[in-house]
């Protein structure tokens, strides 16, 4: 600013004194890059230390479990991008899991049953969005409350019809089992369709987020609500629709998990309570909103899943895995989600 600016110059560019790498490290892609590096490093180390880690079977299994976590984390990523959190995800997963199993046991045709569950999930998400809109700071608690109510209600519903509570058994159609079980095949290829479904969903979502107006609206809201309002981007609509997506994907995850296990169990969602948040955070989406994305979450999901597999392979139990996850979150967050010092906020 020392030199007066020549206003007649048509194009004034800053000298590009930064290398490409330095630029990437400043940008949002930083998290993606670090996550990918971590993923490669983890995989390499695990392949060396654990026999058979790089086997097709193990990779298939990692991808299968990653697909579930990935789908469960989809909504969480969306919601986190606008600065919210959805803790109802594990409960919606559990509820839809047992309700679908219940419906499979009735005369409802399977596709209709799936549709009913999907609509229910979206409706719960919608409810979450509407109820938490005015109390966004408390969205965490509110979604938790809704989640408890949903899972309680679903269990009461399924219990009243049968003697079994919380677990519902019925014959899962073979085609549906094939979608999500490890031995499933996709057009004759040796991997379960759910992996392909996940990839397809991920691709569509990323395209939608990046290339459409409604996708960009999520980032606009996450970045600056007032400015978004000035551009006629409705905060309410965006907030509610992201929660609706979250409810929908949670319900779909719950359904697919039924295909995976073959029997309804309300507890299937439990591992996803904080793991979805961890996947989002490890991937590089800041919970403050506006940054990150599903691409990052995919990396986060894969990192967590490879890590889990690695830790299991190393003989570490669930407890130690949790500790390692926790220890992983801190440096990842410290890398890209630090808030500025208070003196820069004045």
């Amino acid at each position: 600013m020392d030199q007066p600016i020549d206003i007649n110059r048509k194009e004034v560019r800053m000298p590009t004194n930064k290398t490409g790498l330095a630029r990437v490290l400043r940008s949002d892609a930083k998290g993606l890059l670090i996550g990918a590096a971590l993923l490669v490093a983890l995989f390499t180390v695990a392949s060396i230390l654990v026999d058979g880690f790089a086997s097709a079977n193990n990779i298939r299994s990692i991808l299968l479990l990653a697909a579930f976590l990935g789908l469960a984390s989809l909504g969480q990523t969306m919601v986190a991008t606008i600065g919210g959190l959805d803790l109802s995800i594990p409960f919606v997963i559990g509820a839809s899991n047992i309700l679908l199993a219940y419906l499979f046991g009735t005369s409802v045709p399977a596709p209709l049953a799936l549709l009913i569950i999907a609509v229910m999930g979206a409706a719960i998400g919608f409810l979450n969005g509407v109820l938490s809109y005015k109390i966004q700071g408390q969205a965490l608690i509110l979604t938790l409350g809704v989640g408890f109510a949903v899972v309680g209600g679903a269990q009461i519903f399924t219990t009243l019809g049968s003697q079994y509570s919380g677990t519902v058994f019925s014959q899962v159609p073979a085609w549906f089992s094939n979608i999500a079980s490890i031995s499933g095949t996709t057009f004759g290829l040796q991997f379960p369709p759910v992996i392909a479904i996940w990839m397809l969903v991920a691709f569509t979502l990323i395209y939608w987020i990046n290339r459409t107006k409604s996708g960009r609206a999520i980032y606009a809201i996450g970045g600056n609500r007032t400015a978004a309002a000035r551009l006629r981007i409705s905060e309410f609509r965006t907030w509610v629709s992201t929660y609706t997506i979250s409810g929908l994907t949670a319900a779909i995850t719950g359904c697919l998990l039924l295909g995976f296990s073959g029997g309804g169990f309300v507890g299937v969602g439990d591992p996803y309570l904080f793991t979805t948040v961890a996947a989002v955070v490890v991937g590089g989406t800041s919970l403050l909103g506006g940054s990150g994305g599903y691409g990052a979450t995919i990396i986060g999901v894969l990192v967590l899943q490879v890590l889990t597999s690695f830790l299991v392979g190393m003989g570490l139990n669930y407890a130690a895995q949790q500790t390692v996850f926790g220890l992983l979150i801190l440096p990842m967050v410290a890398l890209y989600a630090r808030s500025p010092h208070i003196r820069y906020q004045i």
Binding site: L287, L327, L330, A334
Partner: peptide, 11 residues
């Protein structure tokens, strides 16, 4: 480290 309390305590 200036990370949000909820993340620090989640970890």
């Amino acid at each position: 480290v200036r990370i949000s309390p909820i993340i620090a305590s989640l970890a």
